[in-house]
Structure formats: structure tokens, C-alpha cells
Simulated assay, not measured.
Amino acid sequence: MCGAELSALPEGVQRVAKALQASGHPNPPVMLDDAARTAQQAADALGVGLGQIAKSIIFRRKLDDAAVLVITSGDRRVDEKKVEALVGNGGKLGRADADFVKARTGFSIGGVSPVAHAQPCVTLIDKELFRFDVIWAAAGHPHGVFQLRPHDLESLTGAPVADVTQQPGAAA
């Protein structure tokens, strides 16, 4: 991706593109015609399975007000108790509102990338993503996505892989 292509992208996507480029990631962000604010919208736009969408869920750790990012498979629901046990430091997790997400990540809900955050996040990667050879993640904008492999998430984020989701069919 050259400089002219990069400058035509929204600011958040530019940050993600630069981070991917700096890490040597081979797949730059692509812009979709339609917004992909949800995992289902992204899967439909890309013609892939819902589980192949790496959705970014942000929680607020109440103990120290840290942002906790869980990168999970699009067909799974995060089990907040499992996440608390792993990164809660004895405290509770709470919902992160749009202002908190934007302030901590630099991205709006519906476009939160797993990389290039405004501030560091405590991050966990859902082991369920490893069911797939290829996955897609948000690239800093509701229309922006990038392709990667689950193992790429580990190298791009430095985050551990963990069991962070509810069992399929479990009550919400």
C-alpha cells in the first residue's frame, strides 16, 4: 500500500494499515461498500461464515478503569465470568459505553480493530477463532476490515489465547 492509497482511507483505518504494515502483515485493510458494524453484517458482506469474523468486545475493568478487549469468534458469546477470572484482578468487569471505547481504543463501536489502539488494552483472544484458517477483523471503521489467520492475532497483539466464551446453546 503506497502513501496515496493510505491517505485516502479514514483516519482509524490509516492507523490500522500503518500498524499492519509495520508488523509485516501481508493483508492491508479493505473498505466494504456497506457498513459491517456487526459480525453478521461483516460475514454477509465478505461471504464467509459468521465464526470467521473476529469481533472486538470491550469491557471496563472496574478495579482500575482499564479497557479489556476480548477478540472473539463472531458466532460465540463472551462469558463475562470467564474473562473476569482471567483478567479481573479480583474485581468485576462492566460494560464499556461508546465514549469509553472511543477514548481507550480510538475507534468507534462497530469498527474496533484488534490493533493500533489509542491506549494499551488488556487483551484476550478467543480459542474458538482457531477453528478457522482465515478470519477477518475490523480495521478501525465500520466499513474497514482486514484478513488474517488466528495465529496472526497472537503475534499482532501479544495477547494470550483463552477459553472466554459461553458454550453454544448456553443461556445468555
Rank of each mutant, 00 (worst) to 15 (best):
R15C: 00
V16A: 03
V16C: 02
V16H: 02
V16F: 03
A17D: 00
K18M: 03
A19H: 04
A19W: 01
A19D: 09
L20W: 00
A22V: 01
A22M: 02
G24F: 01
N27R: 00
P28K: 02
P28N: 01
P28H: 05
V30Q: 05
V30G: 00
V30Y: 00
V30R: 11
M31H: 00
D33W: 00
D34Q: 09
D34N: 00
A35E: 13
R37M: 03
T38Q: 05
A39G: 01
A39L: 00
Q41K: 02
A43M: 05
D44I: 06
A45E: 06
L46W: 07
G47I: 03
V48C: 13
V48F: 08
G49H: 11
I53E: 11
I53N: 13
K55V: 12
S56F: 09
I58C: 13
R61N: 12
R61H: 06
K62P: 05
K62M: 08
K62Y: 01
L63I: 05
D64I: 10
A66E: 14
A66N: 07
A66M: 08
A66T: 06
V68L: 07
L69P: 10
T72S: 15
S73Q: 14
R77F: 10
R77L: 11
V78W: 05
D79E: 09
D79K: 10
D79F: 07
D79N: 14
E80N: 08
K81E: 03
K82N: 07
K82E: 04
E84I: 08
A85G: 15
A85F: 09
L86C: 12
V87E: 09
G88L: 03
N89V: 02
N89Y: 08
G90N: 11
G90M: 09
G91N: 09
G91S: 15
G91R: 12
G91Q: 09
K92A: 06
K92M: 04
L93S: 03
L93Q: 06
L93D: 02
L93F: 07
L93A: 08
R95N: 15
A96D: 14
A96Q: 10
D97N: 15
D97G: 15
A98P: 07
A98L: 11
V101C: 12
V101W: 15
K102I: 08
A103S: 12
A103T: 08
R104Q: 15
T105S: 13
G106Y: 14
G106F: 10
F107I: 04
F107A: 12
S108H: 15
I109D: 11
I109S: 11
G110H: 10
G110S: 12
G111T: 11
V112T: 12
V112P: 12
S113L: 09
P114C: 13
H117Q: 11
H117F: 14
A118Y: 02
A118H: 10
P120N: 12
P120K: 12
P120G: 13
C121L: 14
C121R: 01
C121N: 13
C121W: 05
T123M: 13
T123G: 10
L124D: 06
L124K: 06
L124P: 13
I125P: 10
I125S: 08
K127V: 10
E128A: 14
E128C: 09
L129W: 03
R131I: 06
R131V: 03
F132M: 06
F132T: 07
D133H: 01
I135H: 07
W136G: 04
W136T: 05
A137C: 14
A137M: 06
A138G: 04
A138R: 03
A139M: 04
A139G: 13
A139P: 05
H141I: 07
P142V: 03
